[in-house]
Design a binder for these strands. Structure first.
Lengths: 110, 110
DNA sequence: TATCATGCCTACCATTTCTAGGTATCGTCA
DNA sequence: TGACGATACCTAGAAATGGTAGGCATGATA
């Protein structure tokens, strides 16, 4: 019940994934690490959330995927932002900003 | 599909309701109006979201309700923040701030 | 050799918001 | 007077999404 770790709000995961990929091609497991690292360990995405999300996002055409071997010699599925995905990231960031602003307004209320 | 009106992210509604009530006792319909007004029309809560949410929140003991007649002579169910609810509002605001901060960190990334 | 980190996946569950309906009262205006 | 919109409450069901919990495989390391 009591959880100290902040769960993601629904709707934020896509944006985080797209943002992580905007910094360069990356495989699934790496996306989790990049998000954790960039957020100073404040955000941790579960595998059970990530992989289905990646699937959805790929279906929507926001990312493209290919299997490849990376430095360590291991195989992994690399995801890359598409042009549409980059547009989508902008859209989602704008929505997020709007929401943050709107909620700030409500909270400013005397 | 394409929607210009910003939908709420799941998890933000409770905080908004509690915040609206922190400004004073209010009935359901009035909560919707207060949130819309405070957010400069940016947020609009649907009735089908609000009433179930109020029920949940009341079950959790964050608000108390009573039927009363208000100025206009109409009956309405008035909700009031409890002490626990006020605590909860603080908690949720802190969580929200943490999330906003964490996401800002990710987005700052070069 | 055992275990941990890396790497992928799925099934199912929990939660929350919205859509779409229903009901009733009150005031206004043609 | 009668129609309509605003006010005021409610519910059922759909849709979406993140988590839990499981499984599987490989490479590095102790």
């Amino acid at each position: 019940m009591a959880k100290d770790k902040a769960d993601l709000l629904q709707g934020t995961l896509d944006m985080l994934i797209l943002k992580a990929l905007s910094l360069g091609e990356l495989h699934g497991y790496g996306i989790i690490q990049r998000i954790r690292q960039l957020s100073d360990e404040m955000l941790s995405v579960e595998q059970g959330s990530l992989y289905p999300a990646l699937y959805r996002i790929e279906q929507k055409g926001w990312v493209s995927a290919r299997w490849d071997v990376h430095d360590t010699g291991r195989e992994a599925k690399f995801y890359k932002l598409t042009r549409v995905g980059r547009k989508q990231l902008e859209t989602q960031e704008a929505s997020w900003d709007r929401l943050v602003l709107a909620i700030a307004k409500v909270r400013q209320a005397v």
